[in-house]
Amino acid sequence: MSSTAKSLQHAPAAKVVPLNAPAKAAEPVEASTPAPSAAPSAAASSRLARLAAVTKRRALNALPPVLAVGALLGVWELLCAAPDATLPPPSRVVSETWELIVDPFFDRGGIDKGLFWHIYASIKRVALGYFLAAIGGIGLGVLIGSSKWATRALDPIFQVLRTIPPLAWLPLSLAAFRDGQPSAIFVIFITAIWPIIINTAVGIRNIPQDYQNVAKVLRLNRGEYFVSIMLPAAAPFIFTGLRIGVGLSWLAIVAAEMLIGGTGIGFFIWDSWNSSRISDIILALLYVGIVGMLLDRAIAVLGRIVTRGTAST
């Protein structure tokens, strides 16, 4: 059946082209002989003009942020130019941290490592804690989104727990785990899980009745309903939660690492402060910001790929 449908659809089109092509092509070639000398140059110049237009538009788009950053650096340079300024101006930040900027990969043992290794350690902690939060958050979100009893039982608990600042969990988790590493991961987990739970639950509750009716008519069982209807229908909401969660995790990790020590960008900042290396702190802050933005973008892009087409029709 499929092959006949296909051949019916494509065969005529494929045959028509070669049959008609020579007959039709013969005429235009003669008619357009005088044109070729003018045509290519016109085409080339129009392409060039279009390229110029695109370049110009890109340049205009790039101009405002460049100007803003330039102005910011200028003001900063002026404000910190005085000899008794407490913070270094940007020029001194660059000169003092040049070694860290050009070689982020050195490792002289202990905590004396390049910035890449500190950020890598932080990302590893965030990845693990966030991964656990995603699993647990989606699971609990599905539970309270699909069961009124679970909502009534768990919602008050969640409403209280989610307002606790991430760092307030740290002493308790240190007491429980007796080690910095799992404590930091737990803090990430407990920070990221709330928005994931809440958004997932909202997404599950908002599944249109129509989809549920389709599932009922088809007699989908629970597992099939979960995979074919529930997850895809709630995916846009789940990704909203995941995106908020990753931002919060990155906020929490820096603070947690300042307290647990070892490696990590948070510890690096605290260590720099203790050694009065203010320029190092400023460089590290810039990196923290850039990595945070990249994490946010990564989840956003992932969400766009996964939820492609799930927007309602």
Partner: peptide, 30 residues
């Protein structure tokens, strides 16, 4: 409800994340 009483809903009720083929195939597979 059951597939022996198939419903065509007023607002079509297709699953927007599945293609036309997959929407029908979901029912056929089940």
């Amino acid at each position: 409800p059951g597939p022996d009483r198939a419903v065509v809903f007023q607002n079509h009720s297709l699953l927007p994340w599945l293609s036309v083929y997959q929407n029908v195939r979901l029912a056929v597979d089940k």
